[in-house]
Design a binder for these strands. Sequence first.
RNA 1: CGGGGUGUGGCGUAGCCUGGUAACGCACGCGCUUUGGGAGCGCGAGAUCGUCGGUUCAAAUCCGACCGCCCCGACCA
Length: 570
Amino acid sequence: MRLSQLFFASLRDDPAEAEMPSHRLLLRAGYVRQLGSGIYSLLPLGYRATKRVEQVIREEIDRIGGQELLMPVVHPAELWKESGRYQKIGPEMVRFEDRGGRDMVLAMTHEEVVADLVRGLVQSYRQLPVIVYHFQTKFRDEPRSRGGLIRVREFTMKDSYSIDVDEAGLDRSYRLHYEAYERIFKRLGLDTIAVGADVGIMGGSEAHEFMVLNDYGEDTLVLCPSGDYAANQQIAAVRKPEPPKGAPLPIEEVATPGTTTIATLAAFLGVGEDRTAKAAFFVTGDGRLVTAIVRGDFDVNETKLSNAVKAIGGIRPAQVDEIKAAGMEPGYGSPVGARNTAVVVDDLAAKSPNLVAGANKVGFHLRNVNVGRDFKPDIVADITNAREGDPCPTCGKPLELKKGIEVGNIFKLGTDFTVALDAAFLAEDGTRVHPIMGSYGIGLGRNLAVIVEAHHDDKGIVWPAEVAPYPAHLVALGAAREPRVTETAERLHQVALDAGREILYDDRDESPGVKLTDAELLGMPTILTVSPRSLAAGGVEVTDRATGERATRSIDEVEALLRGAERVPA
RNA sequence: CGGGGUGUGGCGUAGCCUGGUAACGCACGCGCUUUGGGAGCGCGAGAUCGUCGGUUCAAAUCCGACCGCCCCGACCA
């Protein structure tokens, strides 16, 4: 590909809106352009790189028996009403009517369509198991996109789906995907950590997320340094400290002016934060007020809390008037004397005697509050966040918290979708059985960005050979002084074309500085420089983009490499 | 949705406070020179100053509303 003809432009200055290195570099090097918030065009270079990512995924999913197909982006809303998600999912799903007034949606994912296909196609256990997958556009109207391609609203995802006759089959499909993902991310040059994860709106019984550590990450990972525990903080369980012993003492009210936070309260009373009870208030999607009680030295984990109360449509922080309506006082709140609220108490707080809790009166707290005696919890469950340094649930070593970006996930879905759509087959014994599904996603654009996050330097992108849009970047310098430069460069370009290994050829009439800087910015694994100097030295200068190592090779050698090797070694 | 910021040629910005009809660098076109690290000189094209409304003799500049984009939070498969 001649750079003079390529539909792209490199930018000398960093675009003002880009903060993450991947965002900055992909814009500057002309791989992507933004169309709107969370909506991007892939330019030819970006599209080529994306297709290479896609091909790696395709090969590995094919290898575990996946069959590629293509499902639509526009779905009849009926299907989503059948599964119940039409009601369950909020405004992140785009809904509209077609000209006939029929409700339609834009696909956020494709479980419904797969279940519908199974309903029509699978009649017998003999047809299973099956793994199908596709690369297709998803639209999720995120409340806030960010970080360039990291979190967008429209994106292409590889999503595969397993359909099995029983749990053992699902376990096998799940493991196959787990292993395929490990191979995929390794080939993409990504160091991933598989962490246990929340199942979210997908339902189901088990899920893992493949995470790449990154300071811009949106997820917090709870990791044991010895490697025997890794979980998303949303679900991470830790060994909690032993509650102090002590017989319940009589409850008493104390004046605690101006102590609306645990820190100020503990300081005012001269007690540890672990002797206090923290109340946090939430409202479920179906309108229930939930009062969460944790010990003052812990924070509420909203995912765990939402799961504990089986909230429909998740939970959100409650408004002040909603809290007051239940007879509680924000800043001085506790369930003592409260009404019309579900009370969820963390298991540790439930076992800790004589806590300081709010008196539901501005400026007052209660000493010696005891869960069970002074108020009745509706639910006792683990609803706290793992903290840095908490003991590993497996080995007891101090846990670390790190930020990560999710590059892929795998879910055991179970039979929720096949039951909801009544997709069933006849088993060997003649009974009608609903198959068990799994769902497995990888976002292409996000992976592209994360690869750049992991593979760049101060000069630009450094593509791993497996995903580089072109294997080499040919630069012709000083052509005006030496006609053999152009002749040689043209011939090398043609040799590569003829071999079906097209390279990027900078045939522009630009200064050496511009060409060399662009070559480094664009990030092809190998830079081939042809110039009067290189010809005098015996041929072509071959530079390894990653290491910076240079060597002069004869023209014949370089031609041979272009014909054969995917990557021309320095 | 809450908080903060921002919007001036393709990109990065100045000008706004103190109103007088748009500037600089890069990029772009043409010519000459130059050619191993973002070249030089000359000529040139390119902007409804986010939108609408208001104040004023006069608005990029002051006021209001709205919109877009970015960051933090909420949210998130």
